[in-house]
Write a protein that binds this DNA or RNA. Structure first.
Lengths: 193, 193
DNA sequence: GTCTATAGTCCGATAGAC
DNA sequence: GTCTATCGGACTATAGAC
């Protein structure tokens, strides 16, 4: 382990976040990020597959954590509830709301970064669906629950981010109730349990 | 406006689709596409902001068409129904299922193209939500209906694409019913009408 | 760690349509 | 003449190859 190079990844992530915040994503080059971190661009691309990925490195480990939570849910009789529950009861507060607000602001300000955010979310939903299916949920139902649950959570998360001190789980529950309030009589089918 | 070789844009789109299909997106360069179309790369970038966009040029006009349909819906008392209805009753058959299948195969085979597809869908949902809001729907409800409606449609669309001769509107209705079947008793709120 | 291909931008020039 | 579409080439940065 080369001790003098230790921490490169963290320094790169920090430098990228700072530079993107200060001068925007487009106007920041990988060379700049590398220079500020005391490494070469080659080192940057050793850690991150592309320039955008430096902002999403953590999201991969986070995703597997969340997928595991779905896979280990006590029961899956209500798959939508499982998805929304796992996502909204995760300890987002513990990761710092300000940091997440800042990160989201950078991402929202740049379409290329938003594209990456969206595909990460899509992959997470796909893995949620697969985890539910592995637990015996019908494939079609699993996909639907994963996708709709993700949307409910994302809307709740956005409100939580910009909002004051509201609890994310509460917002998510509220959002779910709002969805059910849209059920029109003519398209109603009797609950299956 | 029209000139001798005014079909440049169409030729570029066709050449790109063919080449991406034959040898993959990554292994096709803009130079190749331009050469096959008898123009230079400069001309390619005059029509398309980047290499991916050549596959999505039509989707922009399509989006505004669909957004207009939402804005002009007879009524918006059931916003989810409006979104799913507008999307699923559009004449997708008329655009050729084979062409759409081929296009989707190319997109699904490449993450970069999927990223673009996702952000286009996200923008469409945003505009749907705004159109609903303009019609008097509560902002929160409008966003929720737009996003959930989009997911219901996309799942139905994917089934329609791979499937035989099933009607898209029917699949979408079925998918909506499946969503309502997930409503759990404890989170139920009384229907508002 | 160096070298190179490709994406994408910029400026200026050209030529047909009107 | 203007307007619009095309072309030429030089240029930077990303990203991958060697």
């Amino acid at each position: 382990m080369p001790r003098w190079e230790h921490g490169s990844e963290e320094r790169l992530k920090q430098a990228a976040m700072d530079l993107f915040s200060e001068q925007g994503f487009e106007d920041t080059s990988v060379v700049q990020i590398a220079e500020r971190s005391g490494v070469t661009t080659r080192t940057f691309f050793r850690y991150f597959s592309d320039k955008r990925e430096v902002l999403f490195a953590d999201s991969d480990t986070l995703r597997s954590e969340l997928v595991r939570a779905v896979a280990e849910a006590p029961d899956v009789v209500d798959p939508l509830q499982v998805v929304v529950g796992v996502l909204s009861t995760f300890d987002w507060e513990g990761r710092g709301r300000d940091i997440q607000r800042r990160r989201y602001a950078v991402i929202a300000a740049n379409p290329e970064l938003m594209e990456r955010e969206l595909i990460k979310n899509a992959r997470m939903a796909d893995e949620f669906a697969e985890a539910l299916r592995a637990r015996g949920v019908d494939a079609r139902l699993a996909r639907l629950a994963a996708r709709v649950g993700r949307e409910i959570f994302l809307l709740a998360y956005e409100e939580w981010l910009v909002g004051g001190s509201a609890d994310l789980a509460v917002i998510a529950k509220d959002m779910t109730a709002l969805l059910w309030s849209m059920q029109s009589p003519e398209t109603t089918t009797p609950p299956s349990r």
